[in-house]
Amino acid sequence: MKSFLKKNSVPYLFLLPWLIGFFVMTLYPMAMSLYMSMTNYNITRPNSTQFIGLGNYIQMFTSDPKFMKSLQVTFLYVFVSVPLKLIFALLIAVLMNQKLRFVGVYRAIYYIPTLLGGSVSIAVLWRKLFSKDGVINMLLGSLPGINASDLPGWIANPKYAIWTLVILTVWQFGSSMIIFLAGLKQIPQDYYEAASIDGASKVRQFFKITVPSLTPVILFNLIMQMISAFQAFTQAYIISGGKGGPVDSTLFYSLYLYNKGFYLSDMGYASAMAWVLLLIIAVLTLIIFRSSGSWVSYGTGE
C-alpha cells in the first residue's frame, strides 16, 4: 500500500478533481436514487418515508396506465424520429460533400438548426407555427383547394401533436450530418473511380460503396441519437405546456418522470422510473451492438 501510494500519488493527485466529481456528483446521487426508488419518498412528506422494496417497480408495470402510455409515446418517438433524422442527415451530408461553390456556407447554414433547436425559444416558436391559426396553416390554407379553417390545430390535437415534435427533432440533423460528412471524407476516391469505370450508376455507387463504408459512422450516430431521443424533454415540456398533453399524446418518458418527481412530489417513484429508463437504454444499446457484427464493416476485409 505504501509503495503503491508512493509510486502513484502524483497521478492520483491529478485525477483528484475528476475522482471527487465522480464519487460526489455521480456515484453518490446514483446510489441515493437507487435507494429512493425502493421507498415511497415524497418530497413534501419526508418524515413518512418508508422502504417498500420493489413496490414502485411493480406499480409501474401493473397499475399505472400513464406509465404505459409514456412508454408507448417514447418508443414511437424514438423509432420514428431517429431513423428519419439519420436518413435526412446522410442525404444532406452527401450533398454537402459535392464540390460546390460556397459549400462551407451551406454547411454552416444547415448546422444552425442544431444549435437553435434545443432551445426553449424554438419550442415556443414551434407552438405558434403549428397552432390552429399559426403560420403553417396560413401557408397550407393559401394552397388551392384547402380551406385554412378546416385544418387541424397540429399542436392541440392528440392525433398530430407528437408529429410536430418528430419534425422538430428531424430538423436538428446537423450534428449527425457533420459526423457523416467526416465519414464521407474518409472514403477513398479510388472506389468511386473504379466503380464509374465499371459503369456503376451514382445510385448504385451510393448503396454499394458509400453506405457500406459508412456503417461504423451510422452505428455511432444511431446509438448517440437513440440515447438522446429517449431522454428528450425540453421541447415536449414547452410544447405540451409541461403536462404531456393533449390527452397524454406527448407524454415522453422523461416528462412523466419529471412530472411525477417535481410536480406531484413523488420522488421515490420518479427515481424508480429513472432506473427503468437506464435499463431500457442499456438493453437497446446492447442489442444494437450485438447486431452490429452482421451489418457494420470496418473495411478490414473480414
Binding site: 397552432s131 390552429k132 390545430g153 399542436i155 392541440a156 390535437n157 393533449p246
Partner: peptide, 9 residues
C-alpha cells in the same frame, strides 16, 4: 372548438 381551446392555458 377543442383545438382552439387547447391553445390557451
Amino acid at each position: 372548438d377543442a383545438e382552439t381551446t387547447g391553445g390557451y392555458a
